[in-house]
């Protein structure tokens, strides 16, 4: 009988966790950009607290930890598969389109992960009142967080092209 739990299976299992985490992360990113942000101006002032006080903090929790889990599992998969360094170098000199594609995907994903943890989250803490901020600073934080979130929505499109095309080669 063929062995089930092989090295290859572990690489697959971690890739599976990588995709699960990625769906959690990008699903919530798209929820923010496609649903929550466009709906806020339509919600009566008195009811907005339900979003900012309860829904957004929970969504942001799963969002940022989804991002963390995605990058960690992704780096493990790349390392275990032996293409981590080649992909970081964008496959330059390798003449292997899959390494170049996954490398671009990894760099785009890393920029997005950085945006989540070091731009969106610190600014959202001010917006949601988790960290004290003057009304002016709070407005500015909301603007920066919003634009970083939109940047990630834009980057998610080429990032997923790179990731998915590298996984099932057609180049």
């Amino acid at each position: 009988m063929q062995e089930l739990v092989t090295y290859g299976w572990w690489v697959f299992a971690i890739r599976w966790l990588h995709v699960l985490s990625g769906v959690m992360w990008i699903g919530l990113l798209w929820y923010f950009n496609f649903v929550q942000t466009p709906s806020m101006p339509k919600i009566p002032e008195a009811q907005r607290g339900a979003v900012t006080g309860f829904i957004a903090p929970t969504a942001l929790f799963w969002f940022r930890w989804g991002a963390m889990s995605t990058i960690i599992t992704g780096l493990i998969v790349a390392y275990m598969s032996g293409f981590l360094v080649g992909a970081i170098k964008l496959g330059i000199g390798d003449h292997d389109p899959h390494t170049t594609a996954i490398g671009f995907g990894m760099w785009l994903g890393t920029i997005m992960w950085f945006n989540v943890w070091f731009i969106i989250w610190p600014n959202q803490k001010k917006v949601l009142g988790i960290v004290a901020a003057e009304p002016d600073a709070r407005r500015k934080a909301g603007r920066i967080a919003g634009l970083a979130s939109r940047t990630n929505t834009m980057l998610s499109i080429p990032m997923l092209y790179a990731m998915v095309s590298a996984g099932r080669p057609f180049y």
Binding site: T100, A101, R150, M154, L155, S156, P158, Y171
Partner: peptide, 30 residues
Amino acid sequence: MGNPLDSLGTTIFLGFVLTVVLVLLIHAIA
């Protein structure tokens, strides 16, 4: 002046434009 990313539609459009740039870059490098 507004930022192009204020519009969700423009954001998605730019995402697809960047994808075309990415495909060209992948083929240029590989």
